[in-house]
Design a binder for these strands. Structure first.
Lengths: 256, 256
DNA sequence: GGCAAGTGGTCTACGGCGTATACCTACGAC
DNA sequence: GTCGTAGGTATACGCCGTAGACCACTTGCC
């Protein structure tokens, strides 16, 4: 036994700080940590180097589990979207409005608990499988509501934006140590408003902060959208309402 | 006249590459260029170094006109928000729904012409003066519609999200040279979908591309929101409609 | 005219970022 | 044993934002 013991681990104290070999690095651990950091300190804080340090590993080690940063970001969004109740929403037994209401609520729950959601979902087209599936399911519901693909596409964007809108925007927590730094700036600007100048704003400020009594406020947005959809779907389609229809209006997909 | 001409430029060929002293660097020029680059190549492309190069100037020169990157971003959003018809929206002669409709349309126009809008507005609280004013005006309209500050705050976020939603998301133009690179990835993923798997999605794809026949599609979102608001504002407030209110339902906003 | 102050630019340098490339090292299969 | 391979390391490159010192003009004042 001494022999093998000699060979394998230079018995300790060299391997890592000490004790228990760290548990194996895995894609899931990386992604999960990234989401946690992004939520609490902003998306930029979830850098490869930071993650590596936190995982007690070299930055390059992450590349065994993640293709590159884009892949990491995609994986993170996929993690967020796990919370969507897509399966329930596909249940044909439910009226479309109800199914949609539930789906949107699950969106809202996600956004409410993940401040990084807007940064993650805003500005980048859905790449992951589940993101596409979410799109598909929502479009299917809109189709059931009677909207043509063209209109459904337009509405879809409004709906998915709900997720972004529901995320806490003000008062994002800052990295523990830094206190009076730049991120603070806008909060300060907001807090030191000339009192009378933006009355409505200051009145609404507590509710804009995201951490105030979230659950209730958020579903109002869902009601708004569902109510609007019901009105619109009952309204006769009006293809003639389109402005003069200039002849150049091509529906160009994605070509160069 | 010869005298003054002699004195000003050490006659040439030393100042810059040659000919015509470049016109003076100004905050406005910097910000405008930044927006243009961000729109065509993504927000990250609008780096200090890139801007400096494009303006034929040292990166540090920009700091004479812009405090830091956050300030640049704020200035960019302010530029975008110039297009909002805030003044019109404050006209008390208009019914609130009409005023809001117009305001939202101007939002949509902005988002439609500035692909960088989501990245710019998503995830960062409004810091610039005009951003605050926009918030204030919108909240005022919601107040006229009969919503309490609390509800107005929730709705506001849905409304402002409309702007993000309306921005082109798919098929963002890429930097001129690079063709087969990473940005392409998601487009490729989208284009090579198994045909039957996401039928609604593929049907809607042309309309999701953003610059396709924009004007008409976009206003549908506005109609959606206004219609929804009209329904909600006519509906009695129902503070008891909140679900059973499970005792554990803490607003798990942001705490560790 | 001389000169101080200010304005708008440069140069240099630092630390952090994503990541390409090469290398090592333990483990399982044979 | 030997060897392939999965997983981690070491080093390096070129971007990024930006701090600090250092000009060159212009301008106003004496």
């Amino acid at each position: 036994m001494p022999r093998t013991a000699v060979k394998r681990p230079p018995p300790a104290a060299k391997r890592r700080t000490s004790a228990s070999r760290r548990d194996p690095l895995t894609r899931d651990r990386v992604v999960r940590l990234a989401v946690r950091i992004a939520d609490t300190e902003g998306l930029d804080a979830a850098s490869f180097r930071r993650l590596a340090a936190e995982l007690d590993v070299t930055p390059m080690a992450l590349y065994r589990h993640v293709r590159d940063r884009a892949d990491l970001l995609d994986a993170m969004t996929e993690t967020l979207l796990e919370g969507l109740t897509l399966e329930e929403a596909s249940d044909p037994a439910l009226a479309w409005a109800d199914a949609l209401r539930r789906l949107l609520r699950s969106y809202v729950v996600i956004a409410g608990s993940h401040p990084c959601a807007p940064a993650l979902l805003g500005g980048r087209p859905p790449a992951s499988r589940r993101a596409l599936l979410a799109t598909e399911v929502t479009l299917a519901l809109l189709a059931r509501a009677g909207f043509a693909p063209r209109d459904a596409a337009a509405l879809l964007q409004q709906l998915s934006a709900l997720m972004l809108a529901s995320a806490p925007r003000f008062g994002r927590p800052r990295p523990p140590d830094e206190e009076g730094r730049a991120g603070r700036r806008s909060d300060a600007a907001v807090e030191s408003l000339p009192p009378g100048e933006f009355p409505h704003f200051t009145a609404a400020l507590p509710y804009l902060a995201g951490w105030s009594d979230a659950g209730r406020d958020r579903t109002l947005g869902v009601e708004l959208l569902v109510a609007g959809l019901e009105v619109l779907s009952a309204r006769p389609r009006r293809p003639e309402h389109v402005e003069p229809r200039m002849p150049t209006a091509r529906a160009e997909g994605l070509q160069p």
